[in-house]
Every structure is written in structure tokens, then in C-alpha cells.
């Protein structure tokens, strides 16, 4: 690393649309810092896909890169078409919890099962922020949101554990209070093949924090810090004790034959048989 880091060199000269205190700034900054530390002078080796929601605006259109802003929940299928035909490019999906594990959950599981060569970064703010703070599949039980005024009567989804079960090659979860750990995870994940999933628990003071008594980003970050435990620590705790906790760390890191490898092997064989 000879150059000093500046997010500016990767960003279009446009005003960012995010609210003050939004965790997206941390995710955006951390991702670009990871890219910089991997010596990518620009984003020409990347393609970004993102659906609908605040997090989908991380790459689109702010990154100076190819970015495809897809229908809600469909970033992973669009990325599937791109990666299969351009396996040489790093395809990265950004999305919120609603986009990735709400409306897009089926695609998330199937891409993981297929071991599609894709990095998915999910910014989990536990709420539908862009539409004004409705309950999400990741909202903690009992939480009051605009569509659960008496408290959420459903249990949240653990996306990271789901990705492990479905067969991801790399799964990590951090919060926006862990920028260094997050950056190292992103660097590792960019260099790997197969399906990689990083969940970032992130603050939305505007549509979530202020309704649960955490009025500022600072209050929300304090809440994350106080309720975070490492995956190593969590293994020693009972389910009951973990109910209110955010478990962070690397959930899995492994190699499996990837979709791109399998598909291109079949093409090669089919063409060989055709010639004979």
C-alpha cells in the first residue's frame, strides 16, 4: 500500500442520501478501505448488484463501477446471470435484511446451496428503514415498530446461521462497532471463491432507534457494544442467555466446489462429446 486511503477515489461526485448517524457510512467506508488494502486502484474488477432499500444505495450509483440496482429482493438472481457468464469478475451484492432475507430469502438460500461464487454483504438494521420503520424478519421479539405497535409477536431470523446450514464457504457477522474486524472479513471474503456472506448489524437511528428509546447513533452503538458476544464465548452459553445477544465473529470458513467450476466443467464435457 503506497497510496493513502480516500473513499473519494472510488465514489462518484454525488451527494450521499443517507440520514445522519446511519450505519451505512461505516459499511461503505469499511468496504472501500478493504478494497484499497487489497490494492485495487479502482473497482474495474467488480460488479455490484443491489436490490431495493437504503443499503442497496451503497454501490448504486455512488461507486465508480458497474452497478445494477435490481427489483426488490432480486439482486442475487441478477448476480447469478452475471457471475455465470463473467466468472472473472468479483460480483458483490449489497442489501438490507428486508431485501436479502425478507423478500429475497429464497434466492439467498438457493444461491448458498448452489455455492454461487458471490459475496453478499447484508446490512442488518432490524427494520424496514426506507419505508419508515416497519417490522422486519430480523426485528427482535417484542419490539415496537410502525406495524407492530403492540410489540413484535414474531421471532427474528438468524441469517448467518442459515447461511452456514445452507452451505456457504464463508460466513461472518459483525456490528458497525467492529470496523476493523469487518474490514478483515471483507478482505478475506473478496479473495475467496464460492458463496460468502457477511452480515453487519447496523444502526438506523431514524426509523428504528428513536422508537426503541435509543435516540442517537451513539446510543445504538452503545447498545450493540453492550449486547455483543463473540461466537467462541457464545458456544459456552445457553440458548436462553443468548436470546437478547448479537453473536459476532466468523461462523464458517471452508472450501467447497463452486457453481462456476461445476457449470464450466459440464460445458467442457458437453462440447467434447459433441465433437466425438
Amino acid at each position: 500500500m503506497t497510496e493513502t486511503f480516500s473513499v473519494r477515489k472510488y465514489l462518484r461526485d454525488l451527494k450521499l442520501p443517507f440520514c445522519p448517524g446511519c450505519g451505512i457510512f461505516t459499511v461503505m467506508n469499511t468496504f472501500l478501505r478493504a478494497v484499497h488494502e487489497l490494492d485495487h486502484k479502482n473497482l474495474s474488477k467488480f460488479v455490484f448488484c443491489s436490490g431495493i432499500g437504503c443499503s442497496a444505495w451503497i454501490p448504486s450509483p455512488y461507486f465508480i463501477a458497474d452497478s445494477i440496482h435490481t427489483p426488490h429482493g432480486r439482486s442475487i438472481p441478477v448476480a447469478t446471470g452475471i457471475k455465470l457468464l463473467r466468472p472473472d469478475l468479483n460480483v458483490v451484492v449489497f442489501g438490507g435484511d428486508g431485501d436479502i432475507v425478507g423478500i429475497g430469502l429464497s434466492h439467498f438460500i438457493h444461491a448458498t446451496r448452489r455455492n454461487l461464487d458471490l459475496l453478499v454483504i447484508m446490512v442488518n438494521n432490524m427494520v424496514y428503514g426506507m419505508t419508515g420503520g416497519q417490522v422486519a424478519p430480523t426485528t427482535p421479539f417484542g419490539t415496537k415498530t410502525t406495524t407492530t405497535p403492540y410489540g413484535n409477536f414474531e421471532y427474528p431470523l438468524d441469517a448467518a446461521r442459515l447461511a452456514v446450514t445452507a452451505g456457504a464457504c464463508y460466513v461472518a457477522r459483525w456490528t458497525t462497532t467492529h470496523p476493523n474486524e469487518l474490514k478483515e472479513s471483507i478482505k478475506k471474503a473478496i479473495k475467496m471463491q464460492g458463496f460468502r456472506f457477511i452480515e453487519v448489524v447496523s444502526q438506523c437511528p431514524t426509523a428504528f432507534g428513536r422508537r426503541i428509546g435509543l435516540k442517537s447513533a451513539k446510543d445504538m452503538l452503545k447498545w450493540f457494544k453492550e449486547n455483543t458476544i463473540s461466537i467462541e464465548q457464545a458456544e459456552k452459553w445457553s440458548e436462553e442467555h443468548l436470546a437478547e445477544k448479537i453473536i459476532v465473529g466468523e461462523f464458517v470458513r471452508r472450501q467447497r466446489p463452486t457453481l462456476v467450476e461445476a457449470v464450466y466443467k459440464i460445458i467442457e464435457e458437453a462440447q467434447k462429446n459433441e465433437e466425438n
Binding site: 435490481t70 438472481p77 441478477v78 446471470g81 452475471i82 457468464l85 429464497s106 438457493h110 457449470v263 460445458i267
Partner: peptide, 27 residues
């Protein structure tokens, strides 16, 4: 398709199918 170097894939539903096609077109 594999015989001519192309890629066929069965997706999880029709929404994924049309979106994979859109992604492919942008390559």
C-alpha cells in the same frame, strides 16, 4: 446450450429466472 458453450440453469422460481436472464444480458 452446453454443447454450444452456453449456460442453462434452473432457478428457484420465475422471478429468479427472469432476473438471471437480465443479469446475463448485461454481460
Amino acid at each position: 446450450l452446453p454443447q454450444v458453450g452456453g449456460i442453462p440453469i434452473q432457478m428457484e422460481d420465475e422471478m429468479a429466472s427472469i432476473c438471471a436472464v437480465i443479469g446475463a444480458s448485461w454481460t
